[in-house]
C-alpha cells in the first residue's frame, strides 16, 4: 500500500503534442503528488491548457506517457506494445478525474441539481435518491443551496462555475483539473469561485489549476509551474517562483503580469 501511495498521482513524462506544424507541448515532464495543489501559469499559447487536456484525454498525446493513479493513460500495455484504449475504457479512466472549464459548460437543459446528479447516476450507476441527496450537499458546499432548481441560464457566471465544480466533485474524483476557471468571469464574481477552490485545496484534494490569478497561486499552490512555448520552464514553491524566479523568461512574464 505504501508503495502505491508514495507513487505520484499524476506522472507525465516527455509529453509531446502537435497541432499540424505547431508544437503545443515539447517534452513536458511533471510529477504531482497526492493531495498536492499545482498552479500552472504562463502566457497564452504556452501549452498550459493543452497539458491539462492531455491528462484526461480531451487531447491525444503524440509522444511520451501519462500515468494517473499508476495507470497508463490512453493505452493498454502488452509487453513492449501499446494498444489504444476503447471508448468505454477511456471513459472509465476519465471518471476519476474532474474537470472545470473556462466556459463552465454546464448542461443547459438540466437544472443545477440535475447537472450534478447526471454523472453519478448515469456513469457511476448510483441510486438517484442518494445521488440527489449528495448533490444537495455539494450545492451547499459551493454556497448555492437555494439554486437547486435553477437552469444554468438563470445563474450568473460565478454561480455556474461553482455548479460546475460541484458537478466534477460529484464523481468523487482523485484529481481535479481547472482550466482557467475564472478567466470568463466578471471581476466581482471571481472571489466566490476562488473561495470554493481554496476550501477544496484545504480539504486535501489534488488539484492542477491553470490560472492567471497569481495571488491565488501564491496563497494556495504547493508548487507553481511556469510554462512557455510548450515547455515547462520552471517549477518551484510559489513564494520562490513568483517573487524570485530563477529563469529570465519567468522573470519577464511575472513582471509583465504585475503591471
Amino acid at each position: 500500500m505504501t508503495i502505491i501511495n508514495a507513487a505520484p498521482l499524476v506522472r507525465a513524462i516527455d509529453i509531446r503534442k502537435t497541432f499540424g506544424d505547431f508544437e503545443a507541448l515539447k517534452n513536458v515532464t511533471l510529477d504531482i503528488r497526492r493531495g498536492e495543489v499545482v498552479c500552472v501559469i504562463g502566457p497564452s499559447g504556452s501549452g498550459k491548457s493543452t497539458f491539462l487536456r492531455c491528462i484526461n484525454q480531451l487531447e491525444q498525446i503524440d509522444g511520451g506517457a501519462i500515468w494517473v493513479n499508476s495507470e497508463l493513460v490512453g493505452y493498454r500495455r502488452d509487453g513492449q506494445k501499446l494498444y489504444h484504449l476503447k471508448d468505454h475504457e477511456i471513459a472509465r479512466q476519465r471518471r476519476s478525474i474532474g474537470m472545470v472549464f473556462q466556459r463552465f459548460n454546464l448542461f443547459p437543459h438540466f437544472t443545477a441539481l440535475e447537472n450534478i446528479v447526471e454523472g453519478p447516476v448515469q456513469v457511476l450507476g448510483e441510486e438517484p435518491g442518494q445521488a440527489r441527496e449528495r448533490a444537495r450537499a455539494l450545492l451547499a458546499q459551493v454556497g448555492l443551496a437555494d439554486k437547486e432548481t435553477a437552469y444554468p441560464s438563470q445563474l450568473s457566471g460565478g454561480q455556474q462555475q461553482r455548479v460546475a465544480i460541484a458537478r466534477g466533485l460529484a464523481m468523487r474524483p482523485d484529481l481535479m483539473l481547472f482550466d482557467e476557471p475564472t478567466s470568463a468571469l466578471d471581476p466581482e464574481l471571481v472571489g466566490d469561485v476562488l473561495q470554493v477552490m481554496r476550501d477544496l485545496a484545504r480539504s486535501g484534494m489534488t488539484m492542477i489549476v491553470v490560472t492567471h490569478e497569481l495571488a491565488f497561486a501564491r496563497e494556495v499552490a504547493d508548487r507553481v509551474v511556469f510554462m512557455d512555448r510548450g515547455e515547462i520552464v520552471e517549477v518551484d514553491r510559489p513564494e520562490q517562483l513568483l517573487s524570485t524566479p530563477k529563469h529570465s523568461r519567468t522573470q519577464e512574464f511575472i513582471s509583465a503580469v504585475r503591471v
Partner: peptide, 20 residues
Amino acid sequence: GQYEAAQAIGMTRMRMLRRI
C-alpha cells in the same frame, strides 16, 4: 464544450449523444 463536459464526467460516446 458540451461534448467535452460530457466526456469529462466519463460518459461514453453513445451515452453522451443520448443524454447531453
